[in-house]
């Protein structure tokens, strides 16, 4: 394959121009992150008197320590912890309830099966952004404001994950269920011993996507966490800007922005193949 590329205008200068074009794109993508990183390593004075330096300073440890332990309204450590609970809760919750309901819908014939299928299907059309006020009221009535269940539960139902597992279960050979039945295995044994292990890769791929989805939620935590110690890090950054004319603590805010993107970015890069698979799967 690599050799045949040569036939299609892949001479020296062409290659060089192609690399150039891509490097410009890469630079465009990296530039905002680079600036944020520089800002997180210098002192406030260097930023408020523009132009700020374009190379890192020596305040890295100081700024990050200040962000993690003190922050502005709440220590960033605390917000990172909240984000982790929310992202893990959403990812595991969605996967668990979707596996169960997909198993029921594919492997059983029971009254209401089609109705349930369509009820789940309809949720595709109800992103949280379009039903914020009434959903907020429900959560408030349950007393779940400023709580982990309040952050997690309304985002846990997912048609996408259910469909994904349904599609996958349908491709599992019938012989396996047949054999399990002949052996007298109960349905849940079949589910745990055979179906779950077979779904490993699908679960992992979906987990990557759902973790990022949960971690990056903004509007929902913004509505229901009024207590700074329950803020997630992604929504907490905006709260660090002072109201009015005071100058923002840019080094700490930029350190927080980088800390907020670190976990999902590391996951995407470290699990690139699972990530791509999950992305393609969940759009099918």
């Amino acid at each position: 394959m690599a050799d045949t590329g040569g036939m299609v205008e892949n001479r020296g200068i062409q290659r060089w121009l192609t690399h150039m074009g891509l490097m410009i794109g890469v630079a465009f993508i990296f530039f905002p992150i680079w600036l944020a990183f520089v800002a997180s390593t210098v002192e406030q004075q260097e930023i408020v008197r523009p132009p700020m330096p374009l190379l890192p300073g020596d305040q890295f440890v100081d700024n990050y320590a200040r962000a993690l332990t003190a922050g502005v309204n709440a220590p960033v450590m605390r917000m990172l912890f909240n984000s982790a609970i929310m992202a893990l809760g959403i990812a595991f919750g969605k996967i668990a309830i979707s596996l169960l309901s997909a198993f029921a819908i594919v492997y059983f014939r029971f009254p209401g099966r089609h109705l349930f299928f369509w009820l789940i299907f309809l949720t595709l059309m109800l992103p949280v952004e379009v039903r914020i006020v009434p959903t907020y009221e429900v959560v408030a009535r349950f007393g779940m404001l400023n709580s982990y269940p309040g952050l997690i539960l309304p985002l846990v139902a997912s048609a996408t994950a259910t469909f994904l597992f349904r599609q996958f279960f349908l491709t599992v050979p019938d012989e396996l269920a047949e054999a399990a039945r002949v052996d007298g295995a109960r349905p849940m044994r079949f589910f745990i011993d055979i179906l779950l292990p077979m779904s490993r890769t699908n679960i992992a791929a979906l987990f990557v996507i759902l973790f990022i989805y949960g971690w990056n939620q903004y509007l929902w935590p913004l509505l229901i966490t009024t207590d700074p110690s329950m803020n997630t890090v992604v929504m907490g950054i905006k709260q660090m800007f002072p109201s009015g004319d005071d100058t923002a603590d840019w080094p700490v805010i930029m350190a927080t922005a980088l800390l907020a993107m670190l976990p999902p970015v590391v996951i995407v890069i470290a699990m690139q193949r699972l990530f791509i698979r999950g992305l393609v799967d969940s759009e099918k």
Binding site: A96, I97, S98, L100, S101, F103, A104, I105, Y107, F108, R109, F110, P111, G112, R113, F116, L119, I120, L122, T123, L126, R131, T135, V138, L153, P154, V156, A157, T162, D174, A177, E178, R181, P187, M188, F190
Partner: peptide, 24 residues
């Protein structure tokens, strides 16, 4: 090939249906 049972599948879909009903 499917399994027999009416209650079990019902219980299995319930978590998703309840959450969908309450929050969607």
């Amino acid at each position: 090939v499917t399994f027999k049972g009416i209650w079990l599948p019902f219980v299995l879909v319930m978590p998703q249906i309840v959450i969908t009903a309450v929050f969607f």
